[in-house]
Amino acid sequence: MNRKILLSTFLLFCSAGAAFAQQKGTSDISVTVGAATSTDLANLFTNIIAESFTGGAYSTKNFKAGPTFGLTYRYAIANRWMVQADGFYQKMSEDLYVNNEKNGDLKYSYITVGLGTDYRYISKEYFQMYSGAAVAYTSESIDYAGQGEAPKGDGFFNYQVTAAGFRVGKKLAGFAELGFGYKGIANVGVSYQF
């Protein structure tokens, strides 16, 4: 009787190990689109500070933030544990006002490069669920059409916290992530594992 239990337990662990989609050495390439990013928040926060320090002499209106588009490469350094490198691009625009009169148009371009990790706590052949985090640097470029000196672009450190990610499919799959950071509060995409 004990041999049957021992053999059953051994087979159960072997079959569970074979079901992991994130075996050590697996690579994953994904394309992503996201919305409501930390970069949006940084831009809005900068505007509030600038308006406060100038007593309202300088202000912005008609703020528009486009989606962020990204490319991510992940590599499984251990079963279920992946490290990643990614790059994201986002555009924004707003109108600049000086003493309540329109002075010009601002168009921003942001390029973010990040490094991070995620852990697949559910890793089946057709379904994966994970959480992760990343740190990044965001470079800002500004195109200004208006009166006066053009503002200069800047750069800042950024981050991404993925509270929950879901991947559905085998080699080619769709995924969705919820969290906050440079990828957005929500982002979706397609990934290919090999």
Rank of each mutant, 00 (worst) to 15 (best):
F63Q: 08
F63W: 02
K64D: 14
K64T: 15
A65T: 06
P67K: 11
T68H: 03
F69R: 06
G70I: 01
T72E: 15
I77G: 07
I77K: 08
I77D: 08
I77C: 06
I77R: 07
A78D: 15
A78C: 10
N79P: 09
N79H: 08
N79F: 01
N79G: 02
R80Q: 14
R80G: 04
W81D: 06
M82R: 10
V83E: 01
Q84K: 14
A85D: 00
D86I: 02
D86T: 03
G87D: 01
G87I: 10
G87A: 11
F88L: 12
F88I: 01
Y89K: 02
Y89R: 03
K91A: 04
K91Y: 02
K91R: 15
M92P: 00
M92K: 09
M92L: 06
M92T: 09
M92Q: 14
S93D: 14
S93W: 08
E94F: 10
D95R: 14
Y97V: 04
V98W: 12
V98R: 13
N99E: 12
E101A: 15
E101Q: 15
N103F: 11
G104P: 05
L106E: 14
L106P: 04
Y108V: 03
Y108A: 05
S109L: 07
Y110R: 05
I111H: 01
T112N: 09
V113H: 03
G114M: 07
L115H: 01
L115V: 15
L115Q: 05
G116T: 09
Y119K: 10
R120Q: 15
I122N: 08
S123L: 08
S123A: 15
K124V: 10
Y126Q: 13
F127V: 15
Q128V: 09
Q128I: 06
M129I: 13
M129E: 01
Y130V: 04
G132K: 03
G132N: 03
G132D: 06
A133D: 07
A133I: 13
A133S: 11
A133Q: 05
V135Y: 08
A136H: 03
Y137G: 01
Y137N: 00
T138N: 00
T138S: 11
T138I: 01
S139H: 04
E140C: 01
S141F: 04
I142Y: 06
I142M: 04
D143W: 09
Y144P: 02
Y144N: 04
A145Y: 12
Q147M: 08
G148Y: 10
G148K: 11
G148C: 11
A150F: 10
K152G: 07
D154E: 07
D154I: 06
G155N: 04
F156G: 07
F156D: 06
F157I: 12
F157C: 08
F157E: 07
Y159I: 05
Q160Y: 02
Q160L: 02
Q160G: 00
V161K: 01
V161T: 00
T162D: 00
A163V: 11
A164H: 00
G165I: 04
F166N: 00
R167W: 02
V168Y: 13
K170F: 10
K171Y: 09
K171R: 15
L172H: 03
A173N: 12
A173V: 05
A173Y: 12
G174K: 09
G174R: 08
G179I: 04
F180T: 09
G181K: 10
